[in-house]
Nucleic acid binder design. Structure first.
Length: 533
RNA sequence: AGGCCGUUAGCUCAGUGGUAGAGCUCCUGGCUUUUAACCAGGGAGUCGGGGGUUCGAUCCCCCCACGGCCUACCA
């Protein structure tokens, strides 16, 4: 009970490491108790949200409000305070909206006004009173009764500059949300975008499903997984890197239109575009192909964009991005040729079709002096030992990716980098696959799903061979998935879309950490630990 | 994992090889329509941590921690 007498707590502050100011706030909390005021009451009945008052009264002048004298009970956190002896002005926030409170001693009484002596910025207050306008015209609630609702023992960031230290912003996101209204706006938008995506699929009779996050064999992508263990079953498990193989099992089972919005986990680097856990949309449609899926994706992204902005064109990192449909389309080869031309590199289409020719071209034209489409130097050695298809994909990423600012579908991916996609009927070297790029980021990846069990098994074997050297231990083949295909998967189109990156684009966020409430950071306690080995 | 930059009061930031600074916040007093309220007074620091050089280190050097940007990894 009485932690306050804990001998470990020094300097009269409520907890170790808390600022001196906390001791004063704690003393005020005790002062409230001495007055018979509960510092943490259980309930307060509000009649209006602050936004409702602002909306209904912002058009009314002082006289109109005086005549109406709307009676309200509101509540919120105190953000600013201006004391004038026997009157006090507070700015109250309910997270979304701010509204001024005007308190006069002669209205709330000595006891009510006395409570204010124990009230700090950050505390929660309930106020009953009437809506009015001050002499300076500010919409306010003039208090008749003040109820103390909750004590803040820690100070908030100051009112001018707010909070900008990114480390505190990510570690203590609650403070960020209080101090920076645009942060709240970003996450409200994120919610609206995801709601729009659900609405889009629900309206088209897709059913939303949830598939395993813990998988015995992590499949559907090529990333390194996180490992975990189930004790009772003594079973090694992996956090999923993609839901793909489970969703297609469902299509085999007759769920012809399915989607899932959920977390994926990839045990790889952290960057402004990568968080170890991120949110992915995947959707699958029986009897659809790559082309159908592209149209679905295009309309989905446009619908999400229209949900956050009236205009077709949004600003992203200082540049216009047009979400007008149809989106541009380029085959991977076209994109490479175009980007090479823009960089002043000489390349003819023939080289892209001829493995030896491309090998020659890379060693002749591509040097460490060449910069990629992000302005970074190219590493020519990264092209050594790659198959022709892998080399094409690498060239595309190096040369073209950074130029793809407006939403652009890249199509015709080489079969070597597309183990789950169906080959083109007219050219088996390429697949019916697309990726959507926007803001120089990959945001979606879709294809006609490979549904030939025998061919799928062979592709898995090829992959395992190709990656055996690179990864040491050979990757396990998901024979259970092959068996599911053995029961028959109808022609199916599917797509995965990175929700976080889409939200980045639609909220003009330069870092994925700006659209994930709690991005992964090293623990703060690491600071005090001794370095080990 | 590598390179570069950063870490000073609760917040936002200056600063110097010689006892540590500002604004806001905070505390005390005053003020019954203010709003970056105002007026008067006051307090606040492990200068990220450890080691070294030096008579003396917040400053120079080394190591470490955390963060940012870039690279690597990422079908």
């Amino acid at each position: 009970m009485s932690d306050r007498n804990d001998p470990e707590i020094e300097g009269g502050t409520p907890a170790p490491g808390w600022p001196q100011e906390s001791a004063g706030r704690l003393a005020k909390l005790e002062g409230l108790k001495a007055l018979g005021v509960a510092p943490y009451p259980n309930r307060y009945e509000r009649t209006h949200g602050l936004a409702e008052i602002v909306e209904s009264c912002s058009g009314k002048n002082a006289e109109e409000l005086e005549a109406l004298s709307p009676s309200v009970r509101v509540a919120g956190r105190i953000l600013t305070r201006r004391d004038h002896g026997k009157t006090t002005f507070l700015t109250l926030s309910d997270g979304e909206t701010r509204l001024q409170i005007y308190i006069r001693q002669d209205e709330v009484g000595d006891r009510g006004y006395g409570i204010l002596g124990f009230v700090d910025l950050g505390d929660f207050l309930g106020v009953a009173g009437r809506v009015m306008r001050t002499r300076k015209g500010e919409l306010s609630v003039q208090a008749r009764e003040v109820a103390f609702l909750s004590k803040a023992l820690l100070p908030l960031p100051e009112k001018w500059h707010g909070l900008s230290d990114v480390e505190i912003r990510y570690r203590q996101r609650h403070v960020d949300l209080i101090a920076n209204p645009q942060v709240r706006a970003t996450f409200v938008r994120r919610s609206a975008i995801i709601a729009e995506i659900r609405r889009y699929f629900d309206a088209r009779s897709y059913i939303e499903v949830e598939t395993p996050m813990m998988q015995p064999i992590p499949g559907g992508a090529a990333a390194r997984p996180f490992r975990t263990h189930h004790n009772a079953l003594d079973l090694d498990l992996y956090l999923r890197i993609a839901p793909e193989l489970y969703l297609k099992r469902l299509v085999v089972g007759g769920l012809e239109k399915v989607y899932e919005i959920n977390r994926n986990f990839r045990n790889e680097g952290v960057s402004s575009q990568h968080n170890p856990e991120f949110t992915m949309l995947e959707f699958y449609t029986a009897y659809a192909d790559c082309e159908d899926v592209m149209r679905l994706t295009e309309n989905l992204v446009a619908a999400a964009a229209s949900r956050v902005a009236a205009e077709r064109t949004l600003r992203y990192r200082g540049r216009d991005v047009s979400f007008a449909v149809p989106f541009a389309r380029l085959t991977m080869k076209e994109a490479i040729l175009k980007a090479a031309g823009e960089r002043g590199l000489r390349m003819d289409e023939g080289a892209l079709d001829d493995p030896n020719g491309l090998d020659d071209w890379v060693s002749r034209e591509l040097t460490a002096a060449s910069s990629d489409s992000h302005g970074q130097p190219v590493d020519p050695t990264a092209y050594h030992g790659l198959s022709h298809g892998e080399r094409l994909a690498r060239l595309f990423e190096d040369l073209a990716e950074g130029f793809l600012w407006n939403p652009t579908f890249i199509t015709d991916y080489p079969v070597e980098v597309s183990p789950l996609a169906k080959a083109r009927p007219d050219d088996a070297r390429f697949t019916e696959r697309f990726e959507l790029y926007a803001g120089a980021m990959e945001v979606a990846n879709g294809f006609s799903e490979l549904n030939d069990a025998i061919e799928q098994r062979r592709r898995f074997l090829d992959q395992r061979r190709a990656h055996a050297e690179a990864e040491g231990a050979g990757r396990q083949i998901d024979e259970d998935y092959v068996r599911a295909l053995g029961h028959g998967l109808p022609p199916t189109g599917g797509c995965g879309l990175g929700i976080d990156r889409l939200v980045m684009l639609l909220t003009d966020a330069p870092s994925i950490r700006d659209v994930i409430l709690f991005p992964l950071l090293r623990p703060e306690t690491g600071r005090e630990q001794e370095p080990s080995s």
